[in-house]
Amino acid sequence: MTVIPSGRTAPPPPGAARPARPFVGELRLGAFASHRRTVVPLGPLTLLAGASGSGKSSALGGYEALARLAAGDPLEDVFPDPAAWVPERAEADAQGRRGFRLGCTVEGPVGPVGLELAVQAEPALRIVGERLTGCGETLLATALRNPRRSHVEAAWHTAGAVPVTRAPFPDDRLGTALLPLRVAGTTDGQLRVLAAAEQVVVGLRSGFVCDPEPRRMRAAVPAGEGQLTSCCGNLADVLYRTRGQCAQRHARLVAGLDSGCAGRVTGLTAERLADGTVRALAGRGPGRSTPVGRLGDGELRYLALALVLLTGPQVRVADPVAEVPSAMQALTVLADGLDRALDRRQTAELLALAASVCAEGHLRLLGTVGESAAAAARGTAGATVVDLTP
């Protein structure tokens, strides 16, 4: 299936300035779960829509898998049930092998860089092929030459006295993420390889899976855990850590919470209790506050998503902004069921907030939504809706 998005943004004209922060501009699912030749262009705010079974969640899962591999996670951790990602009607070859393919294009300072990955799921999980391309060149290629060995043969561009360097790579790791450990960077060709690999790794590693679970957000939590968890169970701790970093951002969060909650919200604070735990409080007027644990499920999900959107990369790190390299001050939020438990008003407010934040450039969002949220998003400036069809 080839996807044509609603409201696709035109590619930049030749000679246009290249983005300073790497980001994934296209996701490709050549043969992955229910997808066949699916191409999903990704803008700053991209929402996947479609009927149940159209592959919205699996497309998001493909992005997450690439992000985890770029972060160095082993293949077996990323795909604990590899057969689940093999297309249902895919037949095994004469050796009983079946697998899946996926890839992406990462835009950034060195221009578009493509990554393609072929994974064997059966009879044994392993990477059987990887290709990194940029500037019209193949910068890295790997292939499984001997099934009895636990490595692939890798070749990368050198452009020196020896045009190509060859070496074995493990078959359970993304080769692109290993290149900085293998490439010396002594020739122009090697430097191009390293720059392309870094762009892909940084762009993919900015992905952050965010699926707030209200049941985990109601109790006070230990202080000092650092980055926000995917379920947002330690939201109070992150709010406590970031509460004084930016007054303007905090004011926007309070205003957003006021719009998305029943009853008036005049403030949002976090306090440390006598036992060392932290809880969050929503101000309800002079001298009045409510523990956020008493909010409804939709209100808590709305609060968590708004906090992530407005806090951006700092939900993942405890370092002051000045100490984090500029290229790493980016976040791509992956939200499956972005509108889950939200009413129509909350959905509209959250989409407007997401569009506003994503337009600022340091944060991107890829989410899945239901039909009513997709309809609302089509009327939201800056949002791209991609309709997936089974």
Rank of each mutant, 00 (worst) to 15 (best):
A124P: 03
A83T: 13
R89C: 03
E76D: 15
G108M: 09
P123M: 10
P82S: 03
I127Y: 07
R97Y: 05
V113L: 05
V110L: 09
V86Y: 02
G111Y: 11
G99W: 04
L69K: 01
R131E: 15
Q120K: 08
E116V: 10
A121W: 06
G72A: 10
L69W: 03
A92P: 08
A92T: 07
A121M: 05
G103R: 03
G72W: 02
A92M: 08
G114D: 15
G129T: 06
A94H: 14
R101V: 01
R98K: 12
E107F: 12
V86M: 01
R98C: 09
G62T: 01
A92G: 03
F100H: 08
P112M: 03
V106P: 09
R101K: 14
P123S: 10
L125P: 11
R97A: 11
L66S: 04
A70W: 00
R98V: 13
L75R: 07
G62D: 00
A118D: 14
A83V: 15
V78R: 03
E88F: 15
L69P: 02
R101L: 02
A121N: 07
L125K: 04
R68D: 01
L115K: 15
G62W: 00
L75T: 04
E107L: 14
D81N: 11
P80C: 00
